[in-house]
């Protein structure tokens, strides 16, 4: 067969590269570089250099760790995370399982319990302030019940446990919804057949939940845990509204060092610390809570 010259032109040794997708992702790529990579590098730079000379220094970290609030901030941030996140996951799982039973009115219930997704930490703090403040609803109820004569002061520096409790409660109230929706979406990905198979083989509801549903929900639980834990390290407005600086937290300290003490360097040191915490906790979750192979 005679091969025409045009044939040879088309005899490309390799497929042509299609540039369209690269053009389409370019803006996102540039933007991510500018607003994620750059600030991250900048944060580390600010945290370890002297603002005047530009020389390497650990003085900002020393100032941070020597501060009165530093240890407290770490302790409170970790305590709040350790208390609030498990509660959020348990309550979120309970709600998701409830919705998944598809009882009459489950969609209204879903909407109602999802509402806090749209509520900021600031607004949530203000809402629960109206309950816990001295002339708040909690005292009003206690007084109506005849339990107290004069208003109890819950949000005071003398009662750090109450302060902590109020913050944790507010966090659970606000952020359970996100956990719930993530878990519900995960639940709905699990084919009904598995639960039905389990029940055919004689598993009760609890056994089915424990041995079939929860293991299959692993990846969603992992995601919920990571997202919630990272966001718990961000805790700022709720604490500021309910407790001011009486309960110092990492994000709050970053704010105060930036706004109050005008030290972007120490604030950056806090930012780096939060970054390290977020990174290592994500790594820990991925490392030690690895869901099994081939799951949805």
């Amino acid at each position: 067969m005679v091969v025409a010259e045009a044939d040879l032109v088309l005899d490309r040794p390799r497929p042509r590269v299609n540039w369209t997708p690269y053009v389409l992702v370019l803006p996102a790529f540039v933007f991510l570089g500018l607003f994620f990579i750059y600030p991250m590098v900048q944060a580390i730079w600010l945290a370890v250099t002297d603002p005047q000379s530009g020389a390497f220094t650990l003085s900002h970290f020393r100032r941070m760790s020597g501060d009165l609030y530093f240890r407290q901030a770490i302790r409170y941030t970790l305590t709040i995370t350790a208390l609030a996140v498990p509660l959020q996951v348990m309550l979120g799982l309970a709600i998701a399982l409830l919705v998944n039973t598809r009882f009459r009115g489950h969609s209204a219930f879903l909407y109602l319990t999802a509402v806090p997704i749209g509520i900021s930490d600031l607004a949530a703090g203000l809402i629960w302030l109206s309950i816990f403040t001295e002339r708040g609803y909690l005292n009003a109820v206690l007084q109506k019940l005849g339990l107290i004569e004069v208003p109890a002061i819950f949000l005071s520096v003398e009662r750090p446990d109450w302060l902590l409790g109020a913050v944790v409660l507010t966090e659970v109230w606000r952020a359970t919804a996100i956990v719930m929706v993530i878990l519900l979406a995960g639940l709905q990905l699990i084919p009904k057949d598995y639960a039905e198979t389990a029940s055919v083989f004689g598993a009760g509801r609890w056994q089915t939940l424990r041995h079939v549903i929860l293991p299959l929900l692993g990846p969603s639980l992992q995601t919920a845990l990571i997202i919630r834990t990272i966001l718990a390290f961000q805790l700022f407005a709720t604490v500021v509204i309910l407790a001011g600086r009486q309960i110092p937290v990492l994000a709050g300290e970053a704010y105060f060092w930036y706004s109050l003490y005008r030290s972007p360097n120490v604030a950056s040191a806090y930012a780096v610390l939060i970054l390290l915490f977020s990174g290592s906790i994500t790594w820990l979750y991925l490392r030690f809570l690895r869901p099994g192979e081939g799951r949805a």
Binding site: A6, L10, D11, P15
Partner: peptide, 17 residues
């Protein structure tokens, strides 16, 4: 689909590209 190699002719017209 873009081909790695070869030609497609429809009604004698090269439509490969």
């Amino acid at each position: 689909e873009t081909l790695d190699r070869g030609r497609i002719l429809i009604g004698g017209r090269d439509v490969t590209l």
